[in-house]
Amino acid sequence: MHRLGSPPTFYRFAGALRPWLMLVALAAAVVGLYGGLVLAPPDYQQGDAYRIMFIHVPSAWMSLFVYAFMAVAGLVALVWRVKLAEVIAMECAPAGAAFTLITLATGSLWGKPMWGTWWTWDARLTSELVLFFLYLGVIGLYHAFEDRRRGARAASLLALVGIVNLPIVHYSVQWWNTLHQGSTVDWLNLGRSSIAPSMLWPLLVMALATHLYFFASILGRSRIGLLSLESGKQWVRQRVGGQPAQPTGART
């Protein structure tokens, strides 16, 4: 683990792992989408319109998962000042913001015909919007600092503090009367979920696909982040330039 935390080792490891993760993620996405959009039967109430959930629900799960992942990386960055953790935490934010935006957009598209409105200020929708703003805040704070490492630590603190929003998003549908429906999938007992198995399995495959895609993407993004953070160091010159390191520190 310690060795994996060193930038050159991580760079090599991530480079080797990323294509495989991406390949499995793509395969899972193809299977999941085919299962969801073609094989799964229409819903008894919504007909075919419910199929947007095969995008919406995995994205929503990811919007929470990525935030938790970012906050843990942020904690490591804050306490142990591990460079790699700073990079990973900061690279999580755009990915998480994208998942959150997809969640909000697809939910809105579904809400108009089904609920009768694009948007309403109920607890679930509002807390998910707050989550989106938290991601934007982390991205903005990170870029507001001249020194990238200080920026990463400040943004990590914001990411960590924002974690209080996660239980609010998750439990909002139980704590308050909301327009948004409660949870369908029962993780402790999948068979008890109020969804037909023929619709559940594509959903779970899509969840797997989005998780793998996220990890593949974060590995790739972190490699680039490390390269630019460590530019000028010997290992980066060897990796990128391919020519032997110059004796004097002439940066390009």
Binding site: M53, T117, T120, M199
Partner: peptide, 18 residues
């Protein structure tokens, strides 16, 4: 002035519902 329908979080094929 506005009517919104709430979804019941249940998904099943029409045959099962019948």
């Amino acid at each position: 002035t506005k009517v919104l329908a709430k979804h019941d979080a249940t998904y099943m094929p029409p045959q099962v519902a019948q």
